[in-house]
Amino acid sequence: MSADFKHPDRQHQDGRAKTGRPKRRLWRRLRRSRDGAAAIEFAILAIPYFLIIFAIIETFVAFYAEQLVHLAVNNMARELRTGRITYDLGRTTDMTEGQFRQAFCNEISILITCSETEITTPSKLYIDVRTFPTFGDIPGEIPRVSTADFSDIDPSSFDFAPGGPKSINMVRALYRWQVMTDLVRPYITTIRPADGSMPKDFLISATTAIQNEDYP
């Protein structure tokens, strides 16, 4: 019998084996293949990753805004203390409340913009400038609508009436900084809306007490 001759049944088995091996190798390659796995893993992790990044950035910006408001309060208080800003003394240095608010907004304009409406009708920035008989009479707490924790502020007692030479004055500013990232909102918001809705504001508070110089 010729060596090249094969039984028909064996030829059939060999054909099935040859066609079966590529299929099995294909399935093994598919099981081992990781093409696209990185894209899928990134899609799963992208949302929490970017939430953390945005939270870090927003927290940094909020605290920077707080430092900016503190600096503005100190600068405006120094202007009052030295007589470069006065009130109701019949001098060219006299400022109205609106002019004082505009000057304060100019100090923080690098990050916080005050609209014309905000200057005349405060909804975010509240400024309280008053004179007191002694330093002990200056209020040490932020006025709130209730005694509940994180209750909303009550600026109804705020005024603009600084004193003249040698008077004792308080300069206080409150600003509602809106927090956008839900991840950090429960942790850095310091006031809650009176209607019980979701908190969204980080309250920036800056206060300084001064005694004016005996300027002429």
Rank of each mutant, 00 (worst) to 15 (best):
L174Y: 12
I108V: 14
G136Y: 08
F158L: 10
P162Q: 01
A103I: 14
A161W: 03
E116C: 02
A161R: 04
R176V: 06
W177A: 11
T120S: 08
I153Y: 08
R101I: 15
D154R: 11
T131L: 03
D182C: 02
L174W: 05
R130D: 15
G140P: 13
D182G: 09
F132P: 05
V179G: 01
G163D: 09
E116F: 05
I119L: 12
G136W: 06
L174S: 08
K166N: 15
T120I: 06
I138E: 05
P122H: 00
E118L: 06
I138Y: 06
S151D: 08
R101Y: 15
R176I: 09
M180W: 06
F158S: 02
P122Q: 01
P143N: 06
V129M: 01
T131S: 02
S146P: 03
P122G: 00
I127Y: 03
I112N: 01
R176K: 13
T134I: 05
C105M: 10
V129S: 01
S151H: 05
T117Q: 02
I119E: 09
Q178R: 14
V184K: 01
V179N: 01
V171M: 08
K166A: 03
T121Q: 07
D152C: 11
G164P: 05
T120R: 07
G98T: 15
S157H: 12
I108K: 02
V184I: 12
T181C: 05
R130V: 05
V171F: 03
S167T: 13
P133C: 06
R101E: 15
D128W: 02
S123L: 09
E116H: 03
W177R: 10
I108Q: 00
F104H: 05
S146E: 05
E107P: 09
F158Y: 14
P165F: 01
A161P: 08
R101T: 15
A161S: 12
V179W: 02
E116W: 02
S123H: 09
T117S: 08
F135E: 10
S167N: 13
F150K: 13
